[in-house]
Design a protein around this nucleic acid. Structure first.
Lengths: 150, 150
DNA sequence: TCACGCAGTGGGAAAAAGTGGGAAAAAATG
DNA sequence: CATTTTTTCCCACTTTTTCCCACTGCGTGA
């Protein structure tokens, strides 16, 4: 499981070093093959290849005539890019993906279970402050949440 | 079960000595592996690794397209950091987490059953005074609270 | 009252991780 | 097919992190 906030930096060539604590797990799981795609919140998602493939299958199977489904397919499958971890534990984030997420030099890699989210530092901070102050009364909670005891 | 208020101090490198009375229990439960994450009230939560993993599993399973669920995932899983107790019974609290909780030198470790809360001393005192004077009439209690006998 | 021991604290050195640059290989273009 | 540009791979340097050791202060017991 991936978790936690990790400061990462992108160099002039768009290379990003993955935090060492995850590297062994990534090697085991997918021999360094990862897939990067986009999220509607203007961050990037980074999956180990096998995990991505499973999601991709689910997405492809969705009903093609459903608008929501096509939107998801186009966004997620359409932007999915396979990358390999190099000898220094770095991956190459393409210019298009960096631009999409507003990524400059300083990024944050956020562990989210089976995947990472990759945010521009500034965007993340803004969004996070929003989530913290946001009033959540009146919103519909999934029933799983109602009974959650942390 | 963890309970009680414990004064703790953080050194320049962010290291914090855990109170001795809990160390054996922490060794038994998780061999010194703890997870620190954030709370909406701007304090930190400290879980023994197995307790955290159970919560994490529940969080990860929540539906990805639900806004509330993603918010919780990003805040809690996204900030969760695994730490190890060192030979001197200390754990390392990262700069980001310290900053989040406004933690400087003096902190309070509050036992809360299966976890601890870690507060900056000043914030805790202010918040506690607030809870004591807060007027809760007119608020609707969940049914579990209605029948609570203390 | 003095000595011993343990918990707490700080600092420093060794190791590991991160970063940048350059050269070689590959690809693209005319 | 040759030249130019892009990409990839490798090496070396710098910074950060981690681990270990030593000192201090307080409490306890002789």
């Amino acid at each position: 499981m991936f978790r936690g906030v990790n400061k990462v930096s992108l160099d002039a060539k768009g290379r990003m070093a993955l935090p060492t604590r995850y590297r062994d797990r990534i090697q085991d799981r997918c021999h360094g093959s990862l897939v990067i795609t986009v999220d509607r919140d203007y961050c990037l998602l980074v999956y180990p290849l096998p995990d991505w493939e499973e999601i991709e299958r689910k997405l492809i199977r969705l009903p093609s005539l459903n608008k929501q489904a096509r939107r998801l397919q186009r966004l997620m499958v359409g932007h999915a890019t396979e990358v390999e971890m190099d000898n220094n534990g770095r991956i190459l984030v393409s210019g298009e993906l960096r631009e999409f997420a507003g990524l400059d030099r300083k990024g944050l890699l956020i562990g989210q279970g089976n995947k990472f989210e990759l945010w521009d530092e500034t965007s993340w901070n803004e969004r996070r402050d929003g989530w913290l102050t946001e009033d959540d009364t009146g919103q519909d909670l999934p029933s799983e949440l109602e009974s959650l005891s942390l």
